[in-house]
């Protein structure tokens, strides 16, 4: 199941929630040239998760859900423009677990 929050997609697979780029966000920021992960193990809703510098803007991305980080898309650090990809397996940012399901259910449908 896929939802939207804070201008990002959140896709739920069992207990894992993957946060990724929306096409609208990709259009708004332009080509991404630099990313810097916030290296925390746990995020509260609205916490910054990543800073990016792109052709059209400099943006601090914040998480639409609270949860524990299980994986980061580390390859973005060397290939930030993967965030401009249309493929969900390339344009994801982090995967969370320990997410409150009702918080996810309250997000807007994608």
């Amino acid at each position: 199941m896929k939802k939207r929050g804070n201008f990002l997609f959140v896709e739920k697979n069992n207990d894992t929630y993957t946060i990724s780029m929306t096409p609208e966000l990709q259009d708004d920021v332009g080509t991404i040239g630099f990313v810097d992960f916030i290296l925390e193990d746990h995020f509260n809703t609205g916490d910054p998760i990543l800073n990016l510098e792109a052709s059209k803007t400099v943006l601090e991305m914040s998480t639409p859900l609270a949860g524990k980080v299980v994986e980061r898309n580390e390859v973005l650090t060397t290939e930030p423009s993967l965030l401009n990809s249309a493929k969900p397996e390339e344009n994801w940012v982090i995967k969370l677990t320990d997410v409150d399901e009702s918080e996810f259910n309250n997000l807007e449908d994608a």
Partner: peptide, 9 residues
């Protein structure tokens, strides 16, 4: 900060 200032901060 080590990077540029984000929009909206």
């Amino acid at each position: 900060q080590g990077r540029k200032e984000p929009v909206g901060k």
